[in-house]
Design a protein around this nucleic acid. Structure first.
Lengths: 339, 339
DNA sequence: TCCCTAACTGTAAGCGGTTACATTATGAGG
DNA sequence: CCTCATAATGTAACCGCTTACAGTTAGGGA
């Protein structure tokens, strides 16, 4: 049996209260008592029992994050930010990734269970009523990332504006037939908003409602996945006439599109320009132009908001909206070459 | 105050023992008693308190993983496997990522703390004595991934063989001057072994000890990072004569090398062939030829080993060595074009 | 010398569950 | 009708730590 504070108390000839005080407080303990306790703890190789502390303190120093899929560049970026912000605060991170998209709710419930964590970060979770309810019940602090809900602390990007910016950029570069790759149906909110931004920009310059230049990906393996971009791009390029520029709703889809173009022998950006969305880590590697979401910042900010809320549960709820930033690389054919 | 089993007991007019039995066991409880308890729990919106359960059961149904860095393609692959394997077993995942490389030991200690998790997965942790000791003390089940230690369950790849295979492949393809990019010093074990495999292959065919064609990356931001590959490749290509093929110790470094070549206007694979190691997710996107490590399998196997060990702590310790597999894509210039 | 305060330390009651063991009720067998 | 195994439930200890509150001791001031 590993040693407990009782063992230490015995060895040091004090009470467990004193042991606990030595181990945690700076509060008044006589120096030599402190010494004896420390020595005893040392020699016994004492380690506090985390569960016991959690129970007694009613606090776990752990925060939970529900992420739709691990091994995804987007979430990886956010997780990185989360981790960065968490380390100095000495919180631990409990990661809940549903094995199946339908399991999200269960994971949320689990993450929010009493006594498991001190707060929950929800990434891209469309907040259905049932989920919102189980959250309410558990009354844990919650921060939403990449989703919004008026009742919860939210962090997200202005997707409509991003779609608009992207399309304007392509228009200004002189492209005439601008296509769009969106996700499969049902279209997640962010995808829908990006599409709306795209449509708005086109309408503004008097382009005919260009729905014929929109191609949808699939939901498998997930809404913004590479595969969907690949097939959508193939369809777009086989239109007659094909688009001379394409704005994809995500970088992963854009990368799929890149591959499709390459297979069809269509050069990027000479024959078709390409713009993604997200600026995930790989995009830099493949020279993809895109609209940047500050993923790391999402993570860091989310942690800040959450920990603030843990300390002060009644602080006012706020939303933070980021403005996506255009990052010009190789694929949109508008690199100026100026320094 | 959220309801406890005492509240349920009151409402259902039974003892807490019975409540607990209803909530957990299948054991003998009269059907209508069970009903009353369930109803009470339901109407109160009862949620068990995880910390309390953990303490009472002396079990957390959580496993901890210590990963050197989040947001790294290699670990992302492994994490994915871990998550996959964990979900059906309904374990939770506690992720410990040191904010600074020196903090590894602290994270290990934390991960292995009594009562925090039921077992620990260590990714790429060079097992120094002090770490091994704190592990011993906590006497938690441990599985090592991408490292080896005779006293612990280990999963890793035959790095030497990989380096050898890579180099042989390039030799057989007719390349004459084969360079190698390894990590900065101190060279981690896997890097050293890959290099040795490379040297062995060269010696076998009577090449002079080719140390002049080895370039080292740096340790920043981490041993196998892109930056190191980039600078190393620049140096290699400026040799006279330059190598006609390069085997990089990791895919990230190879991707950096790719960028270096592109900047110097050196075509890959026409002017210089390139081979990486790991087969991280991005490699497929950029057409990098490489030696594949089955990252997902690492994760899954690690979880299997760990959970088995949690259930049966005295089972014999075993090592699993994988054989890296050559994956030919675009960058090594040996694509056969055969179906 | 006595009282009071400050500085330590101890006692014991939680935290919210689980579970060994004791107790009670029930019905079958004699 | 009594005995006893069996099923159902209750009692209370325990998991390991924290902490409110009480108690002890020593020294300073009146």
């Amino acid at each position: 049996m590993p040693p407990t504070i009782y063992d230490i108390a015995d060895h040091a000839d004090v009470s467990t209260a004193t042991v606990s005080r030595v181990l945690n407080d700076e509060s008044k303990v006589a120096p030599d008592t402190r010494d004896r306790v420390m020595k005893a703890a040392q020699s016994l190789g004492y380690q506090p029992h985390a569960s016991a502390q959690n129970l007694a303190r009613n606090r776990t120093d752990t925060i939970a994050v529900v992420v739709p899929l691990l091994a995804n560049y987007f979430y990886m970026g956010v997780l990185r930010g989360i981790q960065n912000a968490l380390a100095p605060k000495s919180y631990d991170l409990l990661v809940h990734a549903p094995s199946h998209p339908d399991a999200v709710e269960e994971q949320v419930r689990r993450a929010a269970q009493r006594g498991r964590s001190d707060g929950v970060l929800l990434l891209s979770a469309p907040l259905r009523e049932d989920i919102a309810n189980s959250l309410d019940e558990s009354s844990q602090p919650v921060v939403l990332v990449d989703t919004r809900h008026p009742d919860y602390e939210s962090i997200y990007v202005d997707n409509r504006r991003g779609g608009y910016k992207a399309t304007c950029h392509l228009l200004e570069a002189g492209y005439q037939r601008i296509g769009h790759i969106t996700s499969g149906t049902p279209e997640p909110d962010p995808a829908a908003e990006r599409r709306r931004g795209y449509e708005e920009a086109l309408e503004e310059v008097g382009h005919p409602r260009a729905s014929s230049l929109i191609a949808r990906g699939s939901q498998e393996p997930f809404a913004f996945a590479k595969d969907g971009g690949y097939t959508a791009m193939k369809r777009l390029l086989q239109r007659d006439p094909p688009p001379d520029a394409v704005f994809a709703a995500s970088d992963m889809q854009a990368i799929g599109a890149l591959q499709a173009a390459s297979e069809l022998g269509v050069r990027v950006p000479e024959e078709v320009a390409l713009l993604g969305f997200d600026d995930i880590n790989v995009s830099a590697h493949v020279g993809l132009s895109t609209l940047r979401q500050p993923l790391r910042d999402y993570g860091e900010l989310a942690v800040d908001k959450l920990t603030a809320r843990i300390q002060e549960p009644d602080r006012p709820v706020s939303s933070t909206v980021f403005n996506p930033e255009l990052v010009v690389r190789d694929t949109c054919g508008t690199q100026t070459g100026e320094t």
